[in-house]
Design a protein around this nucleic acid. Structure first.
Lengths: 343, 343
DNA sequence: TTGTAGGCGTTATCAG
DNA sequence: CTGATAACGCCTACAA
């Protein structure tokens, strides 16, 4: 009795449901969008027909008619770093909680500004009503500003474009937490292994590190460049091992810390006895490094959720479902830091 | 009538462009879909108008009219594990290369079958033309089969649903590589720390490990359960440390290996002198464990690309852009394995 | 090479 | 509470 309509490969439409239920398409539409002012009896009949036919609303038709898509776009650097992935999970959750769908646009690492603009256009064409920029660069160009004016946009990082972003982590705070911890332990100065300079965070942390040292009357030692990878951390570690008297290092990522510590150990320097190391992120493996990493935790998933919720609020004009979590970095003290060796 | 806030003016449509360029909407359509049979002069005029008005094709309208969305759906367990993230990157790339857009549907870890069905429905409603299932479970239910018949679906893992999947990694091969390596080194038997039993891979590797031992006349020791996390690896390590004579362990993930090795070291067992460890994945940090991990590499990004390309091929009926990469696991020998200690 | 008609499936408006 | 009708913006088919 509910055999496929012979020869019809076309999926069932509102019209089919209306006919079967003996109502108008408008009534079907009303039922599908949440039984507003439909007699329960009628609604039941419609739902029965929907079930029998296996009908589902055709999103394209609906959004053409209504002007709404309930699509959220996410632009991310095509990275498999934990930070990006976890952020994406948070965005997805907040979106799903509020009936939104997420479509992604990945951009190559180290891509040009044009690539981001192209990604934006792709999402806009798809009908994204709002866009989350999980992007490590500034993007303060006319082209981007023009687009951000057209479709509501939120960043998951702090930039000059979006200066007072309560939903974004204060990178300077991360640096302060890390450097403060080291200084408080009694270290005379703190060296810094920076992240990939392409990413804004790298520079923001670097400046905060520098500022904090200067503030305390310490001349900052030269920056040792990294690029987030454990390999770059290893190289930095070899550099540092060749310098006498280094007793404390602030590394911009846990992954680099793994490489750094390996290089230090190979050079016969003990962590934390000879050198204390603080890193950033608190990935799952941080607690299982040798020694376990003292690190500044970033709540990536919450950051994604916060960014998405903020965007949805702007879109809907009212509080979205799901409370925006507080996003603050947090110092997690483990075993890679200690007071400087007495001498 | 579509609701449009009075302040906002309607974005330009094909009609506007046509009028400005002095042509018909049809010509605009032709130009937008890749200058097919349009006089260069005309095309230029149209493009000029497009530029001037800031016109972009309205995807919903286009797909309503054409019946095509060029949307690929991806269902993934909402995990921030490297494997999922990297797979997603691969899918995105292949999609973008072929003019497709990706929309994601995350499902909670350890979710029920219904959750996957719901995710599928969400994507189908959005108009996904094909769906990549990056899902760790079998899903061999009537509801799923019915849906997979309706919209082309590919899995990125091997399951009974999709038995001969040339684009998916053979999990048994992973186990054979790992166990074979250990046995070849001279170990008498190999213990196994399994992955989360919710994931198909866990069982597939477990069975292959078991089968291989039996094949060589070795009675498999009891399985030590894990759940992918370093914590579970650590617990497994404590269990193993309490058993004398364990000389070789096949752990189902690199992350667990970190925990395992930590526990072994704490118990005074050296890796690889006392115990050899082979894991799976080859994450970036694998080379920076102490000792560096011998592991079986999985090319996650390629797996995602392969799955997407296969799907696109099915959708288009011809070879997609971008060659489907070979996906094979590969043993990477580092420092966590050695011949058994002579005694 | 270009234009004209018609319809894709849904929702908004307004009438009953 | 329910229905008729007109968009929504674009594409396919056919005609010129």
């Amino acid at each position: 009795m509910s055999p496929r309509r012979l020869g019809q490969k076309r999926p069932p439409s509102q019209v089919d449901v209306a006919r079967l239920a003996g109502v108008s398409t408008q009534t079907v539409s009303r039922v599908m969008s949440g039984n507003q002012h439909v007699r329960p009896e009628t609604a039941r009949r419609v739902l029965g027909a929907v079930e029998e036919l296996g009908y589902r609303v055709h999103a394209a038709a609906a959004s053409l008619a209504s002007g709404r898509t309930r699509i959220l776009g996410v632009i991310q650097v095509s990275t498999d770093r934990y930070s990006s992935a976890a952020l994406g999970v948070g965005v997805e959750q907040a979106a799903a909680d509020n009936g939104y769908t997420v479509t992604t646009a990945a951009v190559a690492d180290h891509a040009s500004n044009e690539a981001f603009v192209a990604a934006f256009d792709r999402l806009e064409r798809q009908g994204a009503e709002g866009i989350v920029l999980g992007v490590p660069v500034e993007l303060d160009t006319p082209a981007m500003r023009q687009r951000a004016e057209r479709v509501p946009t939120t960043r998951s990082e702090r930039t000059s474009m979006d200066a007072d972003a309560p939903h974004a982590i204060d990178q300077a705070e991360i640096a302060r937490l890390a450097v403060g911890h080291l200084l408080d332990l009694g270290h005379r100065t703190v060296w810094h292994v920076s992240g990939d300079p392409y990413w804004l965070e790298s520079d923001q942390r670097l400046r905060a590190w520098e500022g904090m040292l200067i503030e305390r009357g310490i001349t900052p030692p030269p920056v040792i460049p990294g690029d987030w990878t454990p390999e770059s951390g290893y190289r930095a570690g070899r550099t540092i091992a060749a310098i006498p008297d280094v007793s404390a290092v602030f590394v911009s990522s846990d992954e680099m810390a793994f490489g750094l510590i390996r290089a230090l150990h190979e050079a016969g320097r003990s962590v934390p006895d000879d050198v204390s190391v603080v890193s950033v992120d608190d990935i799952a493996l941080a607690a299982y490094a040798s020694p376990a990493l003292t690190t500044v935790r970033q709540p990536f998933e919450d950051m994604g959720r916060a960014a998405a919720l903020r965007l949805i609020e702007r879109l809907e004009g009212h509080e979205p479902k799901g409370s925006a979590p507080d996003v603050h970095p947090e110092l997690v003290v483990r075993a890679s830091t200690a007071p400087p060796r007495a001498r």
